[in-house]
Design a protein around this nucleic acid. Structure first.
Lengths: 128, 128
DNA sequence: CTGAATCCGCTCTGATACTG
DNA sequence: CAGTATCAGAGCGGATTCAG
């Protein structure tokens, strides 16, 4: 504890703001789920992806993929065929992000019970 | 690589859904910022926190702190004084989450330039 | 099949005012 | 100081429709 070097991620508040903004764009629900879906398979096409992400709508899938593409997390390959085929895959950057999130994922998985207990406890104290 | 064990975080889809839901509640913008602010200082009072989190409104600060308290991330200590004083600090759980997010933070910081470049490139291709 | 475009309800947020 | 209450605007996200 004390200060092993992980408390301050950036000394420059300018950088800090940029980092926060970046995380904000990258850490939303659908992005996480698509990231996970793409980590399991090397490449996936649009509909396939839609089917493997639980409750995502076509609009949100499109939107999420566009944003991820813009941030450089996924690459998009269009095949000149009929019917059209488009494949998405993680870039190196995207894969690295997936690995980084791995820690958060594991934290959540490891502490599900604790969190559930905390919530139950809180609710019990609030509405007895 | 191929499959070093970090692709599938949970075999049980039930658990997987729970984990996603948990992350959804814990990975929002304000929570991240408050988490960071609280990691730097052991304990902080309400207004102090408000001042150290860039553009947060009083309403969002209250809301975020309540939720974090509910999830067991922060503890809230009220002092019976006048004027009132309330101190917030991270629980062990909260601190562990902070460490888990450290990886994402570092990823973002390390790749700011790459992301910026990807975005510029994407925008250039889209609107030339 | 892979999208883009539109309509629309609902939530999330910020501003403001008020309380203990 | 540390909140709660309320209201209005912005934006998210789903359903549907249309196009290449």
């Amino acid at each position: 504890m004390e200060n092993p070097g992980h408390t301050s991620y950036a000394d420059d508040p300018k950088i800090d703001a940029l980092v926060n903004e970046t995380i904000g764009r990258v850490a939303d629900k659908w992005t996480l789920l698509v990231l996970e879906a793409l980590e399991e398979a090397g490449a996936r096409r649009f509909s396939d992806l839609g089917r493997s992400v639980p409750g995502i709508s076509q609009k949100m899938l499109t939107q999420t993929l566009r944003q991820m593409e813009r941030e450089g997390l996924v690459s998009r390959e269009v095949f000149a065929e009929v019917p059209p085929r488009v494949e998405y895959r993680l870039t190196d950057l995207g894969h690295e992000l997936g690995e980084a999130f791995c820690g958060v994922w594991q934290w959540a998985e490891r502490n599900l019970a604790r969190i559930e207990a905390a919530r139950a406890d809180y609710d019990a104290r609030k509405a007895p």
